[in-house]
């Protein structure tokens, strides 16, 4: 009798103890996995304004710094320099925006005013004004970004590189 009572108590204790542990662990796990459930670090804008359309001369690449703000958990960091881009205004007022990083090994690409070409100083990569690779080791054309113009302001989608 005493023995069976104790066996029963043991089973009940296991069940109750398990329930209690589950009740405590559920919210604990829910909190720990927070970074799976929600973005904790992110840029606050998809399209970043880089200047007025009138600032860009037609046909001549202009280098622009991209600054944006970043949310890092509770903090917001404003005016952070994300990088820079080459902007070329076309005759029809559309824009081409290229990454300043060479698709070969990521060196900074310059604009050669005298030769009218993009030049990568590291391994002598050469690209034309439309970003097409002309010579050198680069495996592809220059990276570009989506753009849009609203109220005369030029915006670049700095998150998506193509």
């Amino acid at each position: 009798m005493e023995k069976s009572r104790r066996s029963f108590l043991k089973i009940i204790s296991h069940i109750l103890g398990g329930t209690l542990a589950a009740g405590i662990l559920a919210p604990i796990i829910g909190l720990i996995i927070h970074p799976w459930l929600k973005e904790t670090i992110y840029g606050t804008e998809d399209f970043i304004g880089i200047g007025n359309l009138d600032d860009f001369p037609v046909g001549i690449p202009k280098k622009m710094t991209v600054t944006s703000s970043k949310m890092d958990a509770w903090n917001i960091f404003e005016g952070l320099v994300m990088g820079s881009v080459w902007v070329i205004r076309q005759k029809d007022n559309s824009l081409k925006v290229f990454s300043t990083n060479c698709p070969h090994l990521g060196c900074g690409i310059d604009w050669g005013n005298d030769v009218n070409k993009f030049l990568c100083p590291c391994h002598e990569g050469v690209f034309d004004v439309n970003g097409k690779v002309i010579s050198g080791p680069a495996p592809r054309d220059m990276y570009s970004y989506q753009t849009k113009v609203e109220n005369n302001t030029v915006f670049v989608n700095y998150k998506n590189i193509t």
Binding site: P27, I28, G30, L31, H34, L37, K38, A73, W74, N75
Partner: peptide
């Protein structure tokens, strides 16, 4: 303060824990 605010307001179970 910011981090406690985050626990309290931005997580799912933070306020409860």
């Amino acid at each position: 303060w910011g981090s406690v605010y985050y626990i309290q307001e931005q997580t799912s179970f933070g306020w409860f824990i």
